[in-house]
């Protein structure tokens, strides 16, 4: 059944308000940046067709509202995600500190099967700003990402398209891996079920 469908990679982008989630997505999907993005209210998605090692996939990127009060809507959108991107703003200490909260919140709401192995990618955005405005340096961020379970970390600028493709390439690969694992597990479970059915039949004989 599922093989008939195109491979869909569902990616959720989370992080505090104003860190640049919408801008990252727009830069990756449409290759453009604007100062005119409105605050995101609720959640919506954009899609992009990709080829990963000769396999064509559709990436579905969910953009979400950053204000805490909208988090409870997540339950409706996070389910079935293949990768979660956690974004902070390199000029905003609080947004960096909140990364692990976003991670936990995601795991609770998405109800993923193997929380320890679920792929997360961390993005520190707005590296184009003056050095003196940055409050989170590379070393600190790297250490943090390691502590959180050796999560991949990228320093990006959505404004100047720095490191965007590299980050999303890893996101896509991790998502694909997760998707294939899930599919394998599903088939594995199906196989077990069939076998069990068979055994039942045998017993009946």
């Amino acid at each position: 059944m599922s093989s008939k469908k195109k491979t869909l990679l569902k990616v959720i982008i989370l992080g505090d308000s104003g860190v640049g989630k919408t801008s990252l997505m727009q830069q990756f999907v449409n290759g453009k940046f604007s100062n005119q993005y409105k605050a995101t209210i609720g959640a919506d998605f954009l899609t992009k067709e990709l080829t990963i090692d000769d396999k064509s996939v559709t990436m579905q990127l969910w953009d979400t509202a950053g204000q805490e009060r909208f988090q409870s809507l997540g339950v409706a959108f996070y389910r079935g995600a293949d990768c979660c991107v956690l974004v902070y703003d390199v000029t905003n200490q609080k947004s960096f500190e909140n990364i692990s909260l976003w991670k936990d919140e995601f795991l609770i709401q998405a109800n993923v099967k193997n929380p320890e192995n679920f792929p997360f990618v961390i993005i520190g955005n707005k590296v184009d700003v003056d050095e003196n405005k940055k409050v989170i340096n590379n070393k600190k961020a790297q250490q943090f990402a390691n502590n959180l379970g050796n999560l991949p970390l990228f320093q990006t600028s959505a404004k100047e398209a720095v490191n965007i493709d590299q980050a999303f390439d890893v996101i896509a690969r991790n998502a694909l891996q997760q998707e294939e694992n899930d599919e394998f597990n599903d088939e594995f479970n199906d196989a077990i079920n069939i076998q069990l059915d068979g055994e039942n039949n045998n017993c009946a004989c």
């Binding site: 469908k5 195109k6 609720g42 919506d44 998605f45 899609t47 559709t58 579905q60 409706a76």
Partner: peptide
């Protein structure tokens, strides 16, 4: 396109 779940499609169209 046979790609998205029906729920996602409906959410997308109704929110836009």
């Amino acid at each position: 396109e046979d790609c998205f779940t029906k729920q996602d499609v409906i959410h997308d169209v109704l929110s836009k």
